[in-house]
């Protein structure tokens, strides 16, 4: 039974990471109906942004706990700025194009970012060890133990998710985001500059992905140019599982996916080999019985 709770706890750690990235997919989809396939790469570049600051700019003898917030913020800013640039250069010119055009562009941006990092960042192809900015050690709850850095990952993720929730539900910009998601034309007539709202949405998703970049780096060093692919795929699955476009759904989807993978690893025969297959089985089952995902609403007709 202890082991069950241990796996549950490991699943929550993994799920928190998935959820942080999934939020970017779901917010962007909610507002422009675009699956931003480059989001995994925005996460990956964020991890390299944090690494760059640590490796090239911070003094070697800086205490890890001082460097941590700097690296974290650097990752977030890198991803946030990159998300804004991608939106401006790649997606905005296609705002009124048929849906397929931005979708294909997204795949192109994803490959372009991977290749740029691979070609131009030293050692990005074999992997760079990410700095370990958190003390080693374990927290024990009953028989369950998690490393400090895993606990930090979960706590920080939850704090960021709550901050996002507050922002979206209770700030003027958050209200404008929701209004734009529901009806962009009417939102415009409320004086909302929806271009600015859309870029803000990309930036918010980028900030969270950047934070996830540093967290994944610390938990699962090294980072290489391909880490965005699997993380992006899992997070996208989580977003669809929760109901794409729905913020709470993305968080729920992330945790469900993480926990399913962890429990499958432990309890399904050959589970560690089949856990990914298992995650997709869950996705398929949910979509069969609830095509809109766990918390998704039926697709709104646009006036």
């Amino acid at each position: 039974m202890t082991q069950f709770f241990q796996q549950l706890s490991d699943g929550v750690v993994l799920g928190a990471l998935y959820a942080l990235i999934a939020l970017g997919y779901t917010m962007v989809y909610g507002i422009v109906q675009l699956i931003n396939f480059a989001h995994g790469e925005i996460f990956m570049v964020g991890a390299f942004g944090g690494y760059t600051i640590y490796h090239y700019l911070l003094p070697d003898n800086m205490p890890a706990l001082v460097a941590l917030p700097i690296v974290l913020v650097a990752s977030m800013i890198t991803s946030g700025v990159l998300a804004a640039i991608v939106e401006r250069l790649a997606y905005r010119p296609l705002r009124n194009a048929p849906r397929l055009a931005p979708l294909i562009t997204a795949i192109g941006v994803s490959i372009a970012l991977q290749e740029m990092i691979r070609l131009f960042y030293p050692n990005a192809d074999r992997g760079e060890p990410f700095p370990q900015l958190f003390p080693n050690g374990q927290v024990h709850f009953g028989g369950v133990s998690e490393s400090y850095v895993n606990c930090f990952l979960v706590v920080l993720s939850v704090v960021l998710m709550l901050a996002l929730r507050t922002f979206v539900l209770h700030s003027a910009t958050g209200r404008a985001m929701r209004a734009t998601a529901q009806d962009p034309d009417t939102a415009r007539l409320m004086g909302i500059n929806i271009d600015r709202i859309i870029v803000t949405t990309f930036v918010l998703g980028g900030l969270l992905a950047g934070a996830a970049g540093t967290l994944q780096g610390m938990v699962a060093s090294p980072i290489d140019f391909q880490i965005g692919f699997i993380a992006g795929l899992k997070a996208f699955t989580a977003a669809v599982l929760g109901g794409i476009g729905n913020i709470t759904g993305a968080v729920l989807g992330g945790f469900v996916l993480g926990i399913v993978e962890a429990l499958a690893t432990q309890y399904v025969p050959n589970g560690s080999a089949l856990k990914d297959a298992f995650a997709f089985v869950v996705l398929i089952l949910v979509l069969v019985f609830r095509p809109t995902g766990l918390l998704g609403e039926s697709v709104r007709a646009r006036a």
Binding site: Q3, L14, N150, A220, I227, I230, A262, T265, N270, S272
Partner: peptide
């Protein structure tokens, strides 16, 4: 005998299984 997947970087639940 257990397995990892190419490209996988996070092994939390496999680590717990091994630990047990």
């Amino acid at each position: 005998t257990d397995f990892v997947t190419g490209g996988q970087k996070e092994f939390g639940s496999l680590v717990s299984k091994v630990k047990q």
